[in-house]
């Protein structure tokens, strides 16, 4: 009995030393670990996120959509066309599920903006049914080729009509950039998610980039 009670202070001392060591290790390691992560978020455009400049397009309800609509909130931009049967609907479905899951986890979801690269066929009326199908809260933008190029030019979007006689005049194919662009609340291009897209990966990187930018703003 006496020997057991004699050992107790020793054990406590050892435990305290262990805790102190662990605390020291964690407190030293943490800032380094965070700094490391920040630089390692793939697709994050830091330290020089590109500020977007004025543009004017119209959404599926024919409401103007300008640079102001990108301010004060986070947005994900995706460029495509409604006659695209494979990759575009896959991405739209994915963006809907990203927003859905963020909301279900009580996390702030970005506004999702689809921008056509095929204004010839994608009129606002045509876009209305298309957007509503995926998510009525999404915005679907169209405009004249000149007005569209003001935005696509800033983001380096490439698109071209494919010359294929077999698909016919009405059924032409478009090649286009398939990346998803993350715009921050100051209307700056914060990150680019390159295809092929994965829901979990996009959600995680979006949250990491958001956290990082919010931290920069508060410090």
């Amino acid at each position: 009995m006496s020997s057991a009670s004699g050992k107790t202070p020793l054990i406590l001392l050892a435990l305290a030393a262990l805790l102190a060591g662990a605390f020291l290790f964690l407190s030293l390691d943490k800032p380094q670990r965070i700094a490391h992560t920040q630089q390692k978020i793939p697709g994050l455009l830091w330290p020089a996120p590109k500020p977007l400049t004025v543009f004017e397009l119209r959404d599926q309800n024919n409401t103007p959509f300008t640079l102001e609509d990108l301010k004060g909130r986070w947005s994900m931009l995706f460029f495509g066309y409604t006659h695209c049967p494979d990759v575009c609907p896959t991405t739209m479905t994915l963006l809907d599920s990203v927003v859905d899951e963020l909301k279900s986890e009580k996390k702030s979801a970005p506004q999702v903006v689809f921008i056509t690269i095929d204004p010839e066929r994608d009129t606002p009326k045509h876009l209305a049914d298309y957007i509503t199908y995926f998510n009525p809260d999404f915005r679907g933008l169209s405009g004249t080729p000149e007005k569209l190029s003001i935005l696509t030019g800033q983001l380096g979007i490439l698109s071209m009509k494919v010359d294929d006689q077999k698909t016919g005049k009405e059924g032409y194919i478009m090649d286009h950039t398939a990346s998803i662009f993350l715009i921050g609340p100051e209307a700056r291009l914060i990150g680019v998610f390159s295809p092929p897209h994965n829901k979990e990966d996009i959600m995680q990187r979006y949250l990491e980039m958001r956290k990082f930018i919010e931290k920069q703003a508060s410090s």
């Binding site: 990759v87 494919v162 698909t167 398939a178």
Partner: peptide, 17 residues
């Protein structure tokens, strides 16, 4: 009906007959 292939090249999605 046609057969098509979607493919990615440097972040650009392409579709070919």
């Amino acid at each position: 009906i046609m057969f098509h292939q979607s493919m990615l090249e440097n972040g650009i999605v392409k579709m070919r007959h």
